[in-house]
């Protein structure tokens, strides 16, 4: 009698690779960042100047020139970070956790059509489309220092308008105390929202918040451009916040909603690690991040390894005019 066939390897349903995993296996491998020996030859080439942003994805959005004024008090004379560095070294986890991921992955991002809604504790909830955002408020160029919580900094010529003007248009109610911001949630366009290995496992959409008096401060900018052109996707197209006296993560990108509230709103990094990132996140050389000192920073401009670019960090990133907003506050406790 013939023996019944017995497979040498017994497999059950548990061994079957999940379909979604199977179809995404290449992406998964890519997102692992561990690509074996091929990177040995690949990365110096990729990392070097000759082939920046070369990837197969073609940029569908090309920044277009803006018209704006250049108020004198915001034209500081510190060396600006070159445009190609500002647009290729970004923390925008929606497009990947690596600094060079956003420029590689955001090329196909389309910020048109766009709507930005302002609601909550306001008299007239307002919705603005892309055209309105670019034309209804007089634009000005402001050169601000940008201090990242990771202890590096840049000097960026932003183009935009004061957030106060936007909030005033919606007429805030007397009960409004805080402003909550929200980034677009669109996993189809933002791979980091779709896959936690790309997006670092953050709870999306990204949210941020300011106290109303911080939001109304004339330094607080809604930026629609940099270096005289509309924002590239990796820098937060089409509209982003810039709060120059706070760490960069407060300056939320690609905003779709602004809500006025009477309670302190949750903020993404604070939710993720409350002991490392506070609600206020004011730049402060005296209060270190638990894992590194904030006493000094490396200013990214030009020059290679040998350029001595470490400079002392200033309280409120040097914007001492905001000190009044925090005059009775313990800055160590409310970091």
């Amino acid at each position: 009698m013939p023996k019944p066939f017995k497979p040498s390897v017994r497999l059950t349903d548990n061994d079957v690779t999940d379909e979604s995993l199977y179809f995404n296996r290449r992406k998964l491998l890519k997102s692992m960042g561990f690509v074996g020996a091929s990177t040995l030859l690949g990365s110096p080439v990729k990392a070097s100047g000759w082939l920046w942003g070369d990837d197969d994805e073609d940029n569908t959005v090309t920044p277009s020139p803006l018209s704006y004024s250049q108020p004198k008090q915001y034209q500081i004379d510190e060396t600006k970070t070159p445009e190609e560095k500002v647009t290729s070294y970004n923390n925008f986890y929606e497009f990947g956790t690596g600094k060079d991921d956003p420029v590689k992955n955001a090329g196909g991002f389309n910020p048109d059509p766009w709507t930005l809604r302002i609601d909550g504790l306001v008299e007239t909830p307002t919705t603005l489309d892309l055209d309105a955002l670019l034309t209804q408020f007089p634009l000005e160029e402001r050169i601000y220092r940008l201090r990242c919580v990771e202890a590096w900094s840049m000097v960026v010529p932003w183009v935009g308008f004061e957030l106060a003007k936007l909030i005033q248009r919606a007429k805030p109610l007397a009960s409004a105390k805080y402003v909550a911001f929200e980034t677009l949630y669109d996993p189809e366009q933002m791979p980091g929202q779709k896959n936690r290995f790309i997006g670092g496992g953050i709870n999306y959409p990204y949210v941020e918040g300011l106290r109303l008096d911080e939001a109304m401060h004339p330094l607080t900018l809604m930026s629609v451009g940099l270096y005289g052109k509309t924002l590239p996707p990796q820098n937060g197209a089409p509209i982003r916040l810039v709060v120059p006296w706070k760490y960069g993560f407060k300056s939320i990108k690609s905003i779709v909603r602004i809500r006025l509230t009477d309670k302190m709103p949750p903020t993404t990094w604070n939710r993720l690690a409350a002991n490392e990132y506070g609600f206020y996140a004011n730049v402060n050389p005296q209060v270190s991040h638990p894992r590194w000192s904030q006493a000094s920073e490396r200013r990214i401009t030009t020059g290679g390894l040998l350029s001595r670019n470490r400079v002392p960090t200033q309280l409120f990133n040097g914007y001492s005019e905001v000190a009044l907003l925090f005059k009775d506050m313990n800055l160590t406790r409310y970091y």
């Binding site: 040995l40 110096p44 990392a47 070097s48 100047g49 000759w50 920046w52 190609e84 560095k85 290729s88 070294y89 600094k99 060079d100 590096w152 490396r298 990214i300 030009t302 020059g303 290679g304 390894l305 040998l306």
Partner: peptide
């Protein structure tokens, strides 16, 4: 590879922030 990294880094050819890349 190590020599290439340092060489490119010194000449600012190692991405926007050569220190970070290195």
């Amino acid at each position: 590879y190590l020599v290439a990294l340092f060489y490119l880094g010194v000449n600012d050819q190692l991405g926007p922030d050569p220190v970070d890349a290195l």
